[in-house]
Write a protein that binds this DNA or RNA. Structure first.
Lengths: 143, 143
DNA sequence: ATCTTTGCAAATCCTTTGCAAGGTT
DNA sequence: AACCTTGCAAAGGATTTGCAAAGAT
């Protein structure tokens, strides 16, 4: 929260209800959110805003490094806090649940990209799709 | 080409100029294409069509397993042939070039997701972003 | 001949922008 | 007081849909 407020101030921005609300929404979110979900979440904590403001403020927060875009679905942009530690996503294609997983092991592969192809990797995006524990119950079991 | 035509027929579809053209475009593409690029590529091989048809036929081809959606940028859907062998993408953030890389080593990690969390991974999407060989020239060198 | 595909125009949906009013510093 | 942010209405784009004409089998 503090770091976020500081970034806003140092970019010449003001601390408004919408921004406080957004910071809180992203702090409390346990998965990436779509623009609509963000607006709904704001509403749930008593911050009423227009879609216009949500769009504008999300862009502001992305530009200032408070929030990151996440590429889960080709249909819809999702956003999550930029303060989360690096992780990947497990997306259940049945119920839609999204979990984060830490323990990234791509560093070695990235170095190899540089050695073998001269491509200097600065970031990556990795998502797994499938069935979560609950949706997977009984699938493939011989009963 | 043959496999593709067969899939179209077996889904009750007809072999039209647009579809032949699309199959050729995807066979010859060396990177994922946006809807606009697809239309342009069609034009270049002499297949004039409307945007409407491009949208409709791409969706048809995705639904019938000829083409896959690729999640390179949150801004824009991209498409590539579903007949390519599994690969990931290297996206240069300076010049926009996109290369494919084979040699996926995520199988073990996927098994671990199942053992440790019960999540059954069926597919994944991995893209690397950074600077390609050419754009990387001289960067970081002490001259 | 029958059923599918095409392209236009219109409809929809999502996102951005201009601007006057209100909020923050 | 100066400057930033908000929300409305309107504009701009992208994608989808209805429908009559053209095309494929």
């Amino acid at each position: 929260m503090e770091g976020a407020l500081k970034k806003i101030r140092s970019s010449g921005g003001r601390i408004t209800k919408a921004r406080r609300g957004l910071i809180r929404v992203f702090e409390e979110a346990d998965k990436p959110l779509s623009v609509k979900e963000i607006r709904r979440s704001l509403g749930e904590i008593g911050v009423k805003t227009s879609m216009t403001t949500v769009y504008r403020e999300i862009n502001f927060m992305v530009k200032n490094g408070l929030v990151k875009e996440v590429n889960l679905y080709p249909e819809e942009k999702m956003y999550e806090s930029a303060y989360l530690v690096h992780h990947h996503h497990l997306v259940c294609e049945k119920c839609g649940r999204v979990e984060g997983v830490g323990g990234c092991r791509l560093a070695e592969i990235e170095q190899e990209m540089y050695r073998k192809r001269g491509f200097r990797v600065t970031r990556h995006s990795l998502e797994f799709y499938g069935l979560c524990v609950e949706c997977n119950q009984g699938v493939g079991l011989m009963t």
